[in-house]
Design a protein around this nucleic acid. Structure first.
Lengths: 166, 166
DNA sequence: AATTTACGTCAGCCTTGTTGACTTTCCAAG
DNA sequence: CTTGGAAAGTCAACAAGGCTGACGTAAATT
């Protein structure tokens, strides 16, 4: 599945020029990708870091600080700064673990869900437009290439979040 | 071309769940995308901002500061800080324009080309591996979706750089 | 009882972005 | 030839969000 060498000409998609185009596509697309949430967040006291925290708490409720740490790939101190303001502002709730009381299980409050909604609505709108314009086949390819581009550990995070529960 | 509504089920790729997967794929993949150059740059006095400047000077030699400014989407002051160190360190040369002497035309020195080579080799290696694993069709879809995701202005930059010369 | 784990926090630093104000150079239009 | 404005550079101050190092505390584990 990964190694069919058909003729020789179909390897043209591996030229340096094609790779460079892909690199720049990533650069410019990522700017678009973050533009809408950034616009919403500017003015509030929050930034991209808060968005990321909110996103992953939303998608994995009751996640622990450690979990979040490894998903986001930042230091405890960096995350803590963000998390503290979100908790103080009443967007996130940190519940002491029942089984292991050292752990903090993170949840979005109603207010937190509200902001999450606004942010992800904006981001999804752009994504949806792009998906629709490109079509299902292109989308499948898009996901395939991105997944292949991840570090193995990140790929585990990405896939694991699919059905991974608590 | 953009609006063929076949049955109803093929719209499943536009569900919120699919969009969320795409969003997270972008997040995790972008980390991988920047990981290798970042590793090279750490230890040197340079960062991602220097990499970006070097990349676009390499691909559009003799570009002006203004051009670079609009491609990178940062302020003059931000870019200038980066550019100054690159010039001081002899990686970039700023030639006064012949026609318009206010302009500075930017070029990589031999030393600059060397670093550019190291950085883009690393980044291309990952890209190539991902492309090869995914196959040409997936790559086409990848590029299509990314392009659709860009802001119109960025898309112009992206496409314009294809054949756009001096 | 000792150690490890999970979390929080203080302090300080770096990169890279921002705004605002100002200067120099120089093209082009009056 | 003068002047307006564009292009470029620079200084200062600030903020977000990374980082390291050191330390503290509570709870689980050994």
């Amino acid at each position: 599945m990964a190694d069919q060498s058909p003729s020789g000409e179909s390897l043209l998609f591996l030229t340096d020029e094609q790779l460079r185009k892909g690199i720049e596509a990533m650069f410019f697309a990522y700017r678009g990708f973050t533009a809408d949430p950034d616009r919403i967040l500017e003015g509030m006291d929050y930034g991209r870091a808060h968005h990321r925290a909110i996103h992953f708490i939303h998608r994995s409720p009751a996640t622990t600080v450690s979990n979040l740490l490894s998903v986001l790939g930042v230091t405890k101190q960096s995350l803590n700064r963000v998390l503290r303001t979100l908790i103080e502002d009443g967007l996130v709730e940190a519940r002491v673990g029942r089984k292991d009381k050292r752990e903090r299980h993170l949840h979005l409050t109603a207010k937190g869900q509200e902001l999450e909604r606004a942010l992800s609505d904006a981001q999804r709108a752009r994504m949806r437009a792009a998906y629709r314009a490109a079509g299902p086949q292109a989308v499948a390819g898009f996901r395939t290439v991105l997944e292949a581009m991840m570090d193995p550990e990140m790929r585990k995070q990405y896939q694991g979040l699919k059905e991974g529960g608590t």
